[in-house]
Amino acid sequence: MQPNVISLVSIGRHPQSGRARRSEQDGRALELGLKLSGSHLQVAHAGAYDSTFSGSAEETVLRQYAGMGLKQMTVLKQSSDADVIPSLSHYLESQSAQVVLLGVRAESGESSGMVPYLLAESLGWPIVSRVADIVSIENGEAEVLLALPRGQRRSVTVTLPFIATVDNAAPEPRQTAYGPGQRAQFNAVDTPEVLDELRINWVEAPAKPRPKRLKVIKAKTAAERFKAATAKAQGGSGKVMKNESAQEKAQAIFDLLIEEKVIR
């Protein structure tokens, strides 16, 4: 039996240009959805859909998702300052979804990563986060690989229906093709709209650079302060070993590997 898979996508943000784009993780969620259920995959986006939609950056991005091979896509009509949870959970329930895939964190807005958890809570479904792959879905259970740092993986099973957030370690989204993207249909759906009250009081500003924390030495004496001030800063130009013996050179490399904890 084909599981009923729904991928949710949002408008991403290019880290360099700040322009709207297909989000990295949502693209992967869509890719994973296509792997699981091919052309049966349903894709939804909650967002603005009004007279300004046509030709907007949002439309361009949604068509980029569609260009991965979708014939159609659902748009749950929401204004930009709405809380999307009621709308999404209403939609997921009405579609009797079994597997819901989304990115770990949105690339724009609050990027809190709370949406999947709130959906899971409101639907009473289990949630697994940072999925690298869904290996199989059988007997009401999915075998899932979770991504851990540095290529490690954890295998878990989770009962259907469930929500999964897709990690950057999941397979890359396929290329989006212009033609199919342009031809895809949007099904706009009216859903309950709830204003996000809390956010209104927030102040947003461009991110301030965070100073990298220096290794602080609490100097208690003048000599120590002097030493701290003159200690060679980390980084800078590297150390070059030329005339030492091969053994010494190898030792230096080894020490660095130990210090960096890549050899244990």
Partner: peptide, 13 residues
């Protein structure tokens, strides 16, 4: 291949 299939190889995409 690019605009219909989305199959630009390697770093193309």
């Amino acid at each position: 291949l690019t605009m219909e299939k989305g199959e630009t190889p390697n770093k193309g995409a």
